[in-house]
Nucleic acid binder design. Structure first.
Lengths: 207, 207
DNA sequence: TGCTAATCAGTGGTAATTAA
DNA sequence: TTAATTACCACTGATTAGCA
């Protein structure tokens, strides 16, 4: 089984092209260096966006092809996100924790970060949130309406509360199997409202 | 280790389509721009891909007889279906599980996917369904009213699928017992009307 | 140092292939 | 065609490592 291979990202998930109505973030962020890790697991594709409003000065992309990471003596690049970028990311995160690749890409374009970075940020954010929840929920003192408590509500509909910030999630700290519903409601990130909901039923083959 | 299922989410979102009525798929999907997958390793893609509603990019795989797949170093192309496409496919699947070649072709045209992809999808769908059926019939706790599927929705809000009939397609193909619920009903949040909560998308950035 | 971006390693779903 | 495999790919959890 091949575990990972490089990925060519050809994938297109649900193309949010729909209407991305994104709020046009026109930030003037400042720095955003991307680096590319071309390691296996991820793909990186650097979309070249060298001119994004967020400023992209990419330091130098490590040569990519060759695993830049394993290079001893090579520093790993660490993207320094601007406040603005973080703000946007957090805002989005409160809405949905697991954007699709495509959404990551769009969002990345909006704020001037490579898709990969956005993706990683979300991953880390999810991890962080989870860890946090577990911590507070653990110790004996769970009694109470614990903040994170096992909220019976459904993750589907209970999106995080807007103001909630990261912890807005209902998901119980414990990943109960049953819950694997993973809250990820993937939806179009930037709330693209475009096409109404139309699940066009399949026509029984137009014969 | 039960981790959560991952991705599944992207796909099957709400499936209330059961009733789906008007088909009307009039997509013009056919564009099919194909991208040739870039090859070898990383590279990336970046260009935005097509814009058709379906986006279908058909990679036209297997082109020549030289089995595209066996080519070492050559990645096998993997079609990434959009939600819309999946929705349609599932809906169709609920109607008839074994469409003819012709039907596959027509359907493919409607949604912008090559006949072959449609055909394969149906094959896999049948296989998955079968597997699923076998699985649920076994393990403990199957009690539930629904013979076919786990109901992912939440009772609180009942947001998810109303009738959730799962079109005949039990999405959860997960083998793991515990996970069987992982059907992640991902739904399109976007359209979730419920919470008026205005998810602040990306803040308008103060320039 | 703590926070967190990036990476490593492993898991699971599923599109595409191959065998029967 | 079905059944079994193979290969792709996004995700999670755990680490590693940069920088305030």
């Amino acid at each position: 089984m091949c575990k990972f291979g490089s990925k060519t990202l050809v994938r297109e998930r649900e193309r949010g092209s729909l209407g991305m109505v994104s709020p046009a973030l026109s930030f003037s962020g400042k720095d955003c260096d991307f680096y590319f890790s071309s390691r296996d697991d991820d793909m990186d594709e650097n979309n070249d966006r060298s001119e994004s409003p967020f400023g992209a000065g990419n330091p130098f992309k490590s040569g990519k092809g060759s695993s830049a990471g394993d290079r001893p003596g090579h520093k790993r690049f660490r993207t320094q996100m601007s406040n603005l970028q973080l703000k946007v990311l957090k805002a989005c995160f409160s809405d949905y924790r697991t954007p699709t690749m495509q959404e990551c890409e769009m969002l990345g374009n909006e704020i001037g970060l490579p898709k990969r970075v956005v993706q990683v940020w979300f991953q880390n954010a999810r991890a962080k949130e989870k860890k946090f929840k577990i911590n507070i929920g653990r110790p004996f003192m769970i009694s109470q309406g614990s903040p994170d408590g096992p909220r019976p509500e459904c993750t589907l509909c209970a999106l995080a509360s807007p103001g909630a910030g990261m912890l807005g999630f209902p998901t119980p700290a414990t990943p109960s199997p049953a819950m694997s519903l993973s809250t990820t409601p993937t939806k179009t990130l930037l709330q693209t409202p475009p096409p109404p909901p139309p699940p066009p039923p399949p026509p029984p083959v137009p014969s």
